[in-house]
Each structure stands twice: as structure tokens, then as C-alpha cells.
Simulated scan of single mutants.
Amino acid sequence: MNAEFIEALNSICEEKGIPKDTMFEAIEAALVSAYKKNYGTSQNVKIVMDRETGDVKVYAQKTVVEEVYNDLLEISLEEARKINKKYQIGDIVDIEVTPKNFGRIAAQNAKQVVIQRIREAERNVIYEEFLAKETEVVTGIVTKVDKKNVLINLGRVEAILSPAEQIPGETFAPGDRVKVYIVEVKKTTKGPQILISRSHPGLVKRLFELESPEIQQGIVEIRSIAREAGSRTKMAVFSRDENVDPVGACVGYKGARVQAVVNELKGEKIDIVKWSSKPQEFIMNALSPAKALSIEILDEKEKVARVIVPDYQLSLAIGKEGQNARLAAKLTGWKIDIKSESMVKS
């Protein structure tokens, strides 16, 4: 190895953001293994690569002792002081033992280490980039539809949209642009693994943040979301400014903002209600579009409430297959027992 190699190595380190010392230390560690493999020695060896010239030297490390029992690992005080008079018992002496043809072996191993480190650095850059995007929405391009799995190109990495994370009934074709929610970023031996979703409630939240300046500015806050992907979502919103209607900020002029989100979710229905710190008021809002006559808190600790609705509103309050009641319970965190007016009287 020579100065040209060092120059190239420095350029690679700078371009890929790899600390030079980290790269040199990795090469030196690999060369120790290569030396022991090729020369079958049980010596303690140290390998030093000159940071300027690229010259590689191998040193046998021996401990200074009064009496030598193992000449591979030990050196007498008398012999050590022939090298340097300052050596004391217990010191480590470096004795150069560089083989004549070691340069060729060193070059091969150094090349392998550099390639490996570049790969690791690139993986780490991608990992850090997407870790910063965890719980965010990104746009990708569908590259392949394999049975039920959808492969999506996110730029520097591809991710699989599994059936469980898809919106039921949604179809994809190569070339489609699609927004996905980054659920989690994992570091694996094969590189970063990006877990993405289109069925996660977080997708709805982030889509509304993109549409509503009031949410971006922190004036309006999304307090909770209950979602059954592909069918219906309920979202509770709160305004920090009494002059700003939180529901209106999400719906937009002539429903433009909510419609943009609905279109992205392929027609999923979205109910936007006002959040309230008062349980009765919040439960009443959550059951929208149904109207309750009264709400009774049965157990505040266990969060159990009974809701009385007019007879003609019972099916609306419960919803198709119980969906409205189920989503309202999930949105509020309360167990909701819905009764009609005639049921209570009887």
C-alpha cells in the first residue's frame, strides 16, 4: 500500500462521513487477523499503518520479565534494555516482525475492510435519515406487487407494505405514488428495515397536519384518533384559541381539507369532533352524528358510562355492526353502554 491508497482512503472517509481513525483501526484489526491466519502465530501482535505513507508494520508484543518461560510472549529485562535502557519489569516491548510479502496480504484485506465499512456507513446514514422520519408521512413509488405484499421505493431504501398495514380493498400497480406512515425503523445486519403502514391512525393525523396550517402552527391539536382503516375514522380535535374552530380548521373551506384526506384514504369516512375535558360532553361529541338525551357516569375509575338516546337514534348511535359505538369508545377511552329511551322506561 502507498500514498495513493491513503489519499483515496481519505477521500472515501470524507465523502461517506466515516471517521478516518475508525477506518484505520478497522483495517489494522483486520490485518492482525490476516497475519495470524497466514503465519499461524500465537504471538501477541500489533499492526500499525502509517497514516501518511500507507506503510504497514507488524510488531510482536512481549512482556518484560525477569525469567523467560515463553519466548513468543516474553522478553528478559536484559534483552529489553538492549533495545531501550528505560524498560522495566512488566513493560510491553514492540519488536518488528513484518514478513517480506505481507504488503500484498495487507492490501487485499484493507480493500475488503474499506468496502465493508463503506457499506456499513451508507446503511447507517440511511438508518439515521429514516429514524428522524419515524412517525412521519413520506411519499414512495410502488415498484412491485408480489402476491399481497407491495414493495415501495422510498428513495434510498425500499420498504414492504404488508397486507396487515394496507387499507382493506386498496389496490396498487407499479409506478403508483403513495403516501405511507413510517411506524418504526429497525437496525438489522442487512441494513435498516423500514416498517410502513397505510392503516395506522398516525397516517390520518399526519395527513391532516399537511392540510391544516392551524395544526402545523399548534393552534389546533389532534387529541385522539380511532380508526378502522378503509371504513371509518373518528378524530377528536381541540383549539388553543377560542376564536378558532378546531373542527372547521380540519374540514376547511367547502370541505376541501377533509376531502383531500378522504381522497388519499380512498374514500374512508372521517368524523371530526370537538375534544372536551368533560367526559359527558366528549362522549356526546364522539357519538356524532347521533344525538344523546343524557349521559350518566356509572364508574369514573373504570371509565364506564351509560348513554340514553331517542328510540329513532339507537341504530345511528350504535352504527352498522356496532362501528359508531366501538369507535366512540376507542376515541374517548370510555366503555359506553347505549340504551334507547323506551328500553330505560321499561
Rank of each mutant, 00 (worst) to 15 (best):
S212H: 08
I95G: 03
L77F: 03
D311N: 15
I336W: 08
V137G: 08
A226C: 00
I18C: 07
I12E: 05
E221Y: 11
N70Y: 04
G252F: 07
A80K: 03
P213K: 04
L151V: 15
V307M: 09
N70R: 06
F172C: 08
L161M: 12
P168A: 00
R81M: 03
K46W: 12
V261P: 06
K86M: 14
K274M: 10
Y127N: 01
T135F: 15
G175L: 07
K339L: 15
I219F: 09
A159L: 11
G169A: 05
G191K: 06
N285A: 03
E67D: 09
E296G: 04
E209H: 05
E136L: 13
A286C: 02
R227K: 06
S315N: 10
V204N: 08
E52M: 10
G322W: 06
R232S: 08
E25R: 14
C250L: 01
D50V: 06
I283N: 05
M49L: 12
A292Y: 12
I83Y: 06
E214K: 02
K111R: 15
D71K: 14
L77Q: 07
I336H: 06
D241K: 10
S294V: 07
V185H: 00
V304H: 11
K254N: 15
V180W: 13
A325D: 06
Y253W: 12
F5E: 11
V178K: 05
A260I: 04
I141R: 13
I89H: 10
F282E: 01
R51N: 08
E136Y: 15
G218P: 04
N243K: 13
A106N: 05
A107S: 15
I75S: 04
G322R: 05
F282A: 03
G155I: 11
G191D: 02
I92E: 14
Q217L: 09
A236D: 04
A256G: 02
Q313H: 11
R227T: 02
Y127Q: 02
V244T: 07
V237H: 08
E66S: 12
V180K: 07
G202L: 11
R198G: 02
D245A: 00
L298F: 07
K187P: 05
V244W: 08
V258D: 00
R306D: 08
F208P: 03
E96D: 09
G202S: 10
P99D: 02
S239E: 02
T63R: 15
E129W: 01
K269M: 10
Q43H: 15
G140I: 10
A30W: 02
F208V: 03
D146K: 10
N149Q: 14
E96Y: 08
L316R: 04
